[in-house]
């Protein structure tokens, strides 16, 4: 039963990722990216990471993807003039040649596949993992062992917030 759900989520994730790769419409690609991120959140749950799945949905689907869709809306061309790279419908984008993409991505995938199939990971053979809620452990770890990275991440987010508003608004004053 769990395995069927797992394979369904794998098909869902990889299928919508391939749709992002194949579609030429940037807005459709953003919506397919939403499905991919939801599928990855489901895979997180099946790997026993409940807190990470919820934060994946909140950060990526609720934050990053809204940002991306706003970026698509703010950067579209309102004139429908055709350039070398865009169709008259401004939101479409053309592909480069498929040769290099397939060569590089296929090569990396075949190398990774061979390494993963041949490799014998000691950690993964240590018997069945036990499943319980990870929220407790993550909270305790964040306040003890990972306190300094946690604080640095807070400062990084503050700097990114101020930097993003500064960069995006800098030409308005001229």
């Amino acid at each position: 039963m769990v395995q069927i759900v797992f394979y369904l989520f794998v098909l869902f994730t990889l299928g919508s990722a391939l749709a992002v790769l194949l579609t030429k419409n940037v807005l459709y690609a953003a919506f397919f990216l939403l499905l991919t991120l939801l599928g990855v959140a489901g895979l997180f749950v099946l790997a026993g990471a409940d807190f990470l799945a919820v934060s994946q949905i909140m950060i990526y689907v609720g934050g990053v993807l809204v940002l991306i869709i706003f970026g698509v809306m703010l950067t579209h061309k309102t004139d429908t003039a055709k350039t070398d790279y865009t169709e008259p419908n401004f939101i479409l984008t053309k592909h480069r040649s498929w040769l290099w993409a397939l060569l590089v991505a296929g090569g990396i995938f075949s190398v990774l596949y061979r390494a993963l199939v041949r490799g014998n990971f000691v950690l993964l053979n240590q018997g069945e993992p036990s499943y319980r809620s990870t929220v407790d452990t993550i909270g305790r770890q964040l306040m003890t062992e990972y306190l300094i990275p946690f604080e640095i991440a807070g400062i990084l987010l503050l700097v990114a917030l101020i930097g993003a508003t500064t960069i995006a608004a800098s030409s308005r004053t001229k």
Binding site: L14, R96, A105, F109
Partner: peptide, 19 residues
Amino acid sequence: AALFSIGLAIVILKRHAIM
């Protein structure tokens, strides 16, 4: 690994900065 390869193919293939 498959998801990483698809992401890499998107980065190489697309001409739009947001893609």
